[in-house]
Computed example of a mutant assay.
Amino acid sequence: MGGRGASMGKGSGASSPAAGGGGGPAQVEPAAPATEQGPPEPEVTKPEATEPEKAGPEMAGAPVSGQPSDAPVAENGWGYDPDLPVSYHDDGPIGTAVKYMGADGQMDIDGQPLANVLGRVATDVVHGRRTPQQGLEEYQAIRDRLPENSQARNCLDFEIRKMDAPASPPPPLPDATPEPLRRLVGELNAIPLVRQDPSKELGPLTELCEQAAAGRASGRRLKRAIQELANRRHESLGDSGKFTIDRALRAAADALDQPPAQP
Results as ranks from 00 to 15, higher is better:
residue 192 P to R: 02
residue 241 G to D: 01
residue 5 G to R: 07
residue 115 A to C: 04
residue 195 R to F: 09
residue 165 A to W: 02
residue 216 R to Y: 12
residue 197 D to T: 04
residue 40 P to N: 02
residue 196 Q to P: 00
residue 123 T to E: 04
residue 230 A to L: 05
residue 227 Q to L: 15
residue 187 E to S: 13
residue 252 A to D: 00
residue 181 L to K: 01
residue 244 T to G: 10
residue 161 R to Q: 15
residue 256 L to I: 07
residue 233 R to C: 05
residue 2 G to Q: 05
residue 215 G to D: 13
residue 56 G to N: 06
residue 61 G to Y: 09
residue 129 R to P: 03
residue 157 D to P: 00
residue 118 L to A: 07
residue 45 T to I: 15
residue 209 C to Q: 02
residue 225 A to Y: 01
residue 237 L to R: 07
residue 37 Q to F: 11
residue 220 R to H: 13
residue 248 A to Q: 11
residue 85 P to S: 07
residue 89 H to V: 08
residue 9 G to H: 11
residue 38 G to W: 08
residue 177 T to Y: 08
residue 66 G to N: 03
residue 232 R to N: 12
residue 96 T to W: 01
residue 147 P to E: 06
residue 184 L to A: 05
residue 101 M to D: 09
residue 192 P to Y: 02
residue 30 P to F: 05
residue 197 D to W: 00
residue 62 A to W: 09
residue 20 G to D: 09
residue 93 P to S: 03
residue 209 C to M: 01
residue 216 R to D: 15
residue 80 Y to H: 14
residue 249 L to V: 06
residue 151 Q to Y: 11
residue 254 D to C: 00
residue 91 D to V: 09
residue 168 S to M: 14
residue 1 M to T: 09
residue 263 P to N: 04
residue 191 I to V: 13
residue 21 G to K: 03
residue 42 P to C: 07
residue 245 I to Y: 00
residue 256 L to A: 02
residue 225 A to V: 02
residue 188 L to Y: 05
residue 247 R to E: 08
residue 239 D to K: 01
residue 112 Q to G: 01
residue 168 S to T: 14
residue 198 P to H: 07
residue 248 A to R: 13
residue 94 I to M: 10
residue 114 L to D: 04
residue 235 E to Q: 14
residue 56 G to Y: 03
residue 201 E to L: 01
residue 218 S to I: 00
residue 137 E to P: 02
residue 199 S to Y: 00
residue 2 G to A: 07
residue 198 P to F: 08
residue 52 P to I: 08
residue 206 T to H: 04
residue 1 M to D: 01
residue 182 R to Q: 15
residue 47 P to H: 06
residue 123 T to P: 06
residue 18 A to C: 11
residue 2 G to Y: 02
residue 166 P to N: 09
residue 210 E to A: 12
residue 82 P to H: 06
residue 222 L to K: 06
residue 202 L to T: 03
residue 114 L to K: 03
residue 18 A to K: 09
residue 200 K to D: 00
residue 70 D to Q: 14
residue 147 P to H: 03
residue 40 P to S: 04
residue 235 E to I: 11
residue 176 A to D: 15
residue 107 M to N: 01
residue 100 Y to T: 14
residue 258 Q to I: 09
residue 21 G to A: 08
residue 200 K to V: 06
residue 189 N to G: 03
residue 22 G to F: 06
residue 115 A to G: 08
residue 105 G to Q: 13
residue 2 G to I: 06
residue 244 T to A: 15
residue 20 G to T: 06
residue 138 E to T: 05
residue 127 H to D: 10
residue 59 M to D: 15
residue 164 D to A: 14
